[in-house]
């Protein structure tokens, strides 16, 4: 009798355990679900709602359809979008190939004390944007003796008011971004390079392939997943850029909107002008753009993976 209850007990205990194994993943992942609903879904639905309503004074908001989206298409928003797009394009253009070339160099055994250089190159990523912004603002000062003007002077270029014109502001912002993220991307590429089979290089050497041919036909395909990863984070970073421009100009608004970005537009419309409707519409436009890029990226890389178990 006692033996039987023992078996029964064991049975229910086992069943309880199995139930627990089934239940456990839901408890483990519950924090994300709660977080997702409260700080992702709710804010996004709220943004959609706000983007479609109009608030005048203290009256409750009224539904206004796509009126805010129509108001969005003004010079300021177009400036901001153009700036963000150009900034993103040029940062990608530099921050994808350059760190790869430098990583190959660092990995090549030709560089003396490469560990030291890796650390040095990585340090910019640790700095706050305020400190870095301080440097870029005053290194690119319009003073003819300031660092950058002195530097371009060597090539016979006259002193510039770097942060007073749109094109030169782009240059400053792109250099700022390259300076900050170059080392991080090098680290990504370096770890990817370790995964590329050394045998391939040896075989290519025997076949008489040049260094450039080896780079194009072995290295680049070998690190392709990392290239795509770097491209994605660069696009993400490019379109969400705000803090850099904010520290350079001390404000979300800049004279002539030369330093305006999509996010600074959202910030300025929302917090400086209380145009929550228009700001939200801009947020939704940006969100749509980012989601399209993500879907394309997910299609290409398939991070969930069919053979991931």
């Amino acid at each position: 009798m006692s033996k039987q209850t023992d078996i029964q007990k064991k049975g229910t205990k086992k069943a309880g355990k199995i139930r627990m194994i089934k239940l456990a993943p839901y408890i483990f992942t519950a924090p994300f679900v709660i977080y997702f609903l409260l700080f992702f879904i709710y804010p996004i639905t709220d943004t959609i709602k706000t983007s479609m309503s109009q608030q005048v004074g203290f009256a409750p908001p009224k539904f206004s359809g796509f009126a805010n989206y129509k108001l969005l298409i003004d010079d300021y928003f177009i400036m901001a979008t153009q700036n963000s797009a150009i900034y993103t394009f040029f940062t990608c253009l530099i921050l994808i190939p350059l760190p790869l070339l430098l990583a190959v160099l660092l990995d090549s055994k030709f560089v003396v004390r490469s560990e030291l250089f890796k650390s040095a190159l990585f340090i910019p990523a640790l700095t706050s944007v305020v400190m870095a912004g301080l440097f870029f603002k005053y290194a690119f000062s319009s003073n003819p003796n300031a660092l950058m003007n002195a530097f371009v002077g060597v090539f016979g270029i006259p002193p510039q008011g770097w942060l007073e014109k749109r094109t030169t502001t782009w240059i400053v912002l792109v250099l700022f971004c390259v300076w900050k993220w170059l080392g991080v991307n090098i680290v990504y590429y370096l770890s990817a390079l370790q995964m590329v089979s050394k045998d391939l290089y040896e075989a290519a050497m025997i076949d008489g392939a040049t260094a450039w041919e080896r780079f194009i036909h072995i290295t680049v395909p070998g690190v392709k997943p990392t290239i795509i990863y770097v491209l994605t984070i660069s696009i993400y970073g490019g379109f969400s850029m705000f803090a850099e421009a904010f520290t350079l100009f001390n404000s979300a608004r800049t004279p002539g909107d030369i330093g305006a970005t999509i996010v600074s537009y959202i910030y300025a419309q929302g917090f400086n002008r209380n145009n929550f409707g228009i700001a939200s519409a801009a947020g939704i436009v940006l969100l749509a753009g980012v989601l399209i890029i993500n879907i394309i990226q997910l299609r290409i890389t398939d991070p969930v993976g069919k053979n991931n178990d």
């Binding site: 993943p25 994300f32 700080f39 804010p43 996004i44 943004t47 996010v263 969100l287 969930v304 178990d309």
Partner: peptide, 30 residues
């Protein structure tokens, strides 16, 4: 392995990919 695992992972990636800056206004209200 549980139901909704892949979906949840895609949602994680989505949150990762959406710049928080887009949500500053509604988050501020919240």
């Amino acid at each position: 392995r549980f139901k909704g695992r892949n979906t949840m992972f895609i949602l994680v990636l989505m949150v990762m990919m959406v710049p928080v800056e887009i949500l500053i206004l509604p988050l501020y209200k919240e």
